[in-house]
Each structure stands twice: as structure tokens, then as C-alpha cells.
Design a protein around this nucleic acid. Sequence first.
DNA 1: ATTTGTAGTTACCCAATGGTAACCAGAATA
DNA 2: TATTCTGGTTACCATTGGGTAACTACAAAT
Lengths: 125, 125
Amino acid sequence: MRDDRFCNSNCPFTRAIGTIGNKWKPIIINVIGTRTIRFGQLDSIVPHISRKVLTEQLKELEEDGLLERFAYKELPPRVEYKLSEKGLAFLPILESIKEWNCKYEVAPIPGEAGKKSRVNYARMP
Amino acid sequence: MRDDRFCNSNCPFTRAIGTIGNKWKPIIINVIGTRTIRFGQLDSIVPHISRKVLTEQLKELEEDGLLERFAYKELPPRVEYKLSEKGLAFLPILESIKEWNCKYEVAPIPGEAGKKSRVNYARMP
DNA sequence: ATTTGTAGTTACCCAATGGTAACCAGAATA
DNA sequence: TATTCTGGTTACCATTGGGTAACTACAAAT
């Protein structure tokens, strides 16, 4: 799910997109935020993701230095994740994407025919 | 290639990722920048993209209000694209991603065994 | 003795992504 | 007359993404 061609580009921006430019990683980074979180929590908080894909994404984020992983040799096992300095430095960017979207997103007119309208703007957990 | 579940989320951030959270759109927006550009130019500048995918991405970007399309009824046809206000407002975010990557990216040690090293850091056209 | 719980891994399979090549219009050019 | 040029669209096909379910280890609880 990392794009090797992008990651080996000679353009730093293209490489960045190769690293974090898919739909899951920004969501995961945003959900983690500044807290320490366990695998099971992520699995239940991130909407619609499967354990398999979550595992893959977390592994890549760790390899790319955005995430730190702490595995405790207990039973049942416990694994905790938190953002690294690099990952934390990415949070303001996500925040500005949020603001950008809120400012420019075209909200569908409620009840307009032929368009499925959104329900409400509740906050993410 | 837009993720409907994301786009219909009740979380504005998730919706934003549903809209621009794939590998091509940030690249395309970055390539266009502040200029007016023709389809054929984009096709030759954006690396590795096929005409089909480029067409789809441009159409979605237009539908999502990031891009304006001007088709001239000439022969051979001419179509020009430029970023809308919304699209232009996204450029600073891409710029900060670029800076973030340059600051935190772990450059491979040149000549290190077992790793394919990058060539050089030339500028994008 | 069996169940429960965590954090995965693996195999299997279907749906979606995306690439290639052919085709289009219609004027200009050779 | 045939070719070229542009900005697509379409059909076809291979690759990939990603979902589900089963399986793992081992301790603690029932």
C-alpha cells in the first residue's frame, strides 16, 4: 500500500505522498493524536477498518518513523502505540486540512432531490 | 477512487480525506499550482499516470470544486484547467507537507548494502 | 476442562484499481 | 489521400486491495 515508485521519486513531495498519501494513514494518525493507544482501541475507533489492514498500516507508519510501538511481554499481550516526534509534527497539517475542508466544503442542501444528504456533524471519538 | 463511506462520514476530517486522500490528487494539485494548464501537459508532467486515471481524477477534482475546467470548441480541442479558490487554498497545505517531509525524512545512507538508495533531489518540473 | 481475551498472522477469495490499446471528431498538413 | 493532433471514451484484462474466517500463544477465570 506504499507506492514504491513514489517513495523512490527524486521529488521530496512525491516521496511524502508515497508515504502518507492513502486514505487510512491520515485517519489513523488523527485518531491517535497525542495519546498512547492500544491496538484494540484503534480497531474499534477507526471506522470500517479491518484488523489486517490496520496491522499493515501501523507497521508501515512505524517503519516510516511516524509511530512508536511498545510491546509488553504479557499474557494476554499488550501493545501500545504513540506518535513519534515526526508523527506529532504531522498533526498540525491534519488540523489545517480539517479547517480547509470546513471552510470550503459544499454542504448539500438538505432534502434536495437526487442527492443523498449527510446526517449531522458529530465529533469523532 | 473517492471513498463513499468516507465522503458520507459525519466527521469533516474524514470527509476531507475521502475527497483528497489518495495518491494522485495531491500530486496533480501540486503540479498545477497557480498556473493554467492543458490536459496534454498534465499527462506528460505527472509521472506514471495514465490518461484514463488522469481524466478520472480531474473530473473528481472539478466535481469537488477544487478545479475549474475550460473547454474551447476548437479543433483539435483544447481544454484548460486551473485551481479554484478552494484548490488554491489547498496549496499551502501541500507546501507544509513538503517541508515536513524534508525535515523528518530519513535519508538512506548512500551505498549502504541491501537498500536501494535514491539518486538525487532534482526539482519537479 | 473449557472459555475468554489480546494482538496478530495466514490462507482464501471477490471486488475494485488501473493499465493498454483501439476508437472518435474534424481541421490542418504533407 | 493519408497522417497528425487533442482530449477524451470504451472495452478488455491483469494486478492489487482488502474483507472474512480460522488459527496462534498462554494465562487467568469459570
